[in-house]
Amino acid sequence: MQQLLTTVLTGVTLGVVYAAFALALVLIWRATRIVNFAQAPMAMITTYIALVLIDAGYSYWLGFAAALLSGLVLGAVVERFVVRFVSGKSEINAVILTLGLFIVLHALAAIVFGSRYRSFPAPFGLRGFQIGDTTIALTGFGVFTVVAVAVVMVGLVLLFRGTDLGLRMRASAFNQEVSRLLGVKVGRMLTLGWALAALVGSLSGLLIAGGGLVHPSYMDGVVVYGFVAAVLGGLDSPVGAVVGGLLLGLSLSLVSGYVGSELVPLAALVILMAVLLLKPGGLFASVRERRV
C-alpha cells in the first residue's frame, strides 16, 4: 500500500513534467508538422543558463526566469533562422534537421558548460511530507512542479481560447494559406508558436533538473517520454498530450517501482509501439484512421 502510494505520487509528479514536454512537442507539431526532437537539448541549454546564474550567486528565481526567457528566444531563433527553410518540404529532411540541431546543441553545451554532472538546486524541500509517522512521496518541490505546469497550461488555454492572437495562432496551425488570405501573418505566428513551445520545454527542463543532476544528455530520455506521451494523446491534441503525460508518468513509475528503473526506457518503447500499432490515432482517437 505504502509503495503503491509512493509510486502513484512519483508518477503524477513525473507525469506532469512529461505532459509539459509533450505539450511543447504538440504545439510545434500542430503548427509545422515537425516533431522537434531538438526540444530536449534546447531545454538542456536553457537549464544550464539558469544554473550558471544560480552558481554565480543569483537567486533560483532569477535563474528560473532567465531560463524561460532564453527558451522563448531560442525557440524563436531556431524557427526563424533554421526550421523556416525546410517547412513544407520533405518530412525526412525536417526530422534530420532537428537531429542535426540535437547534435549541435549537445556539443555546444559540453564545450561551454562542460560534460560533468552538476547538481541543480530546488527552491522547495525535497523531503516527503510527514503524515503522522509516515513520510509520503510528495515533496514541496513536487507540489511546485505540479502547480508550475498547471499555471503554464492555464496560461496557454487562456491565450489560445481567449485572445485574438491565440485565434490567429490556431488558424495558422490549421491552414497556412487560408490564414494568409485572412490577413494572418503566418510567419510571425509560427515563430511565436516555436517560442512558446520552447518556453514550455524549458520549464520541463528546469523541473526535471530541480534537486537532481544536469549534464548535456540529461534530457535525452525525456524527449522520448515526451514523444510517447504526445503520441498517446494523438500528437495533435494538447489535452491528449497532458493526459498522455500523466498516464505515461504513472506507468513508468510502476515499472520503476516494481521492475527496475533500468527498464523504464524499454517500457516506454513498448508502450509507444503498442499505441502506434494498435491505436495509431492515440488513445482518444475516434474512428478516424491516421497514417503514422
Partner: peptide, 13 residues
C-alpha cells in the same frame, strides 16, 4: 517522425 520517434526510443531503451 513516428518512425524517428520509435527508433529514438529504441536507442534510448
Amino acid at each position: 517522425p513516428y518512425l524517428a520517434g520509435a527508433t529514438l526510443a529504441l536507442a534510448v531503451a
